[in-house]
């Protein structure tokens, strides 16, 4: 036993790589290779050249879809923040039991397949669903259709993505040293100024992490906007699917996918460069 351990220690540099190998191989085979194929298709289908990128970057339809995608992702992120921050705060400031109960509810929803949750929203918001019925009962003569609008898809995406935001913020809030708050109070900080000068900046890393996560996931969201959203306000992933399934435009779809990927990477890059808040407060 001792021999094995010292052997391992001796090859310290190799060992982590060995452990990583299966995953690395898996990723290479099933992620990088297909990704390469997509990149390849984007410049070869139907002809060799940058035609697809030209279309994606200059065509008004595509531009509108990209702008819409960004707008939706930003909207969903802000909504998640507005819902998530108070909830995380509540969890952190209530009794242990209640916090656990809330956590349980959130994780239960989180673990439910998002396809199931998407269909659940279809049932809830549909024309024969309880929401419309309620609206009609309280006096809307002709309740507006809620399903297949920006509202319904945003609502569902906020529901699906909020746990990411909540968990990120909650974990940061939980780690805040109570002595920091007490010392702020002893120095004369009350409610709003305490929040603005101390609590909010201390939770900023959680906000940044949660927001980037939600934003990036939202950029590539496919099922929910397709099933619940307005057909006239498509998001990028939906349009890509559309191109490939309906028009068999593999090249164009691939070019859009690559553009989306690059945009996502840029967001992540900016985040890690500018807002590496985790490290700043470390």
């Amino acid at each position: 036993m001792a021999v094995t351990v010292s052997n391992l220690a001796g090859r310290k540099n190799l060992w982590p790589w060995l452990l990583l190998a299966p995953l690395a191989l898996y990723l290479a085979l099933f992620f990088l290779v297909p990704l390469g194929q997509v990149a390849m298709m984007s410049v070869t289908e139907p002809r060799v050249g940058l035609d697809n990128y030209e279309k994606v970057l200059t065509g008004t339809l595509y531009r509108r879809v990209f702008i819409n995608t960004f707008f939706t992702a930003a909207l969903v992120t802000v909504c998640c923040l507005l819902v998530g921050y108070p909830l995380a705060y509540l969890m952190n400031h209530t009794t242990e039991r209640r916090a656990m109960a809330i956590l349980l509810l959130i994780t239960m929803s989180f673990w439910t397949s998002f396809l199931v949750r998407t269909y659940a929203w279809m049932v809830l918001l549909g024309n024969n669903g309880p929401v419309i019925w309620l609206l009609a009962t309280i006096g809307f003569a002709d309740p507006p259709g809620i399903l297949f609008t920006r509202f319904s898809s945003t609502l569902a995406m906020v529901h699906i993505l909020a746990p990411y935001m909540i968990m990120n913020i909650y974990s940061v809030m939980k780690k805040i040293d109570p002595a920091l708050i007490r010392s702020a109070e002893s120095m004369g900080a009350y409610g709003t100024s305490l929040f603005r000068h101390v609590y909010l900046p201390l939770t900023a890393p959680g906000i940044a992490n949660g927001s980037v996560l939600v934003f990036v996931i939202c950029l590539g969201f496919y099922v929910t906007p397709v099933l619940l959203g307005s057909p006239t306000e498509q998001m990028a992933a939906g349009l890509i699917g559309h191109q490939i399934e309906q028009f068999l435009a593999f090249g164009l779809g691939s070019a859009m996918a690559i553009v989306l990927l690059i945009v996502t990477l840029i967001v992540l890059w900016i985040y890690s460069r500018r807002f590496g808040l985790d490290r700043l407060y470390g």
Binding site: R182, S183, E185, S186, A189, V198, P201, Y281
Partner: peptide, 20 residues
């Protein structure tokens, strides 16, 4: 009197400096 109203300076064991 709330802690804010007492005009008492406190140094905590782990300093409790604001990291930001």
């Amino acid at each position: 009197l709330a802690p804010q109203e007492r005009n008492i300076g406190i140094v905590f064991q782990n300093y409790a400096l604001f990291p930001h």
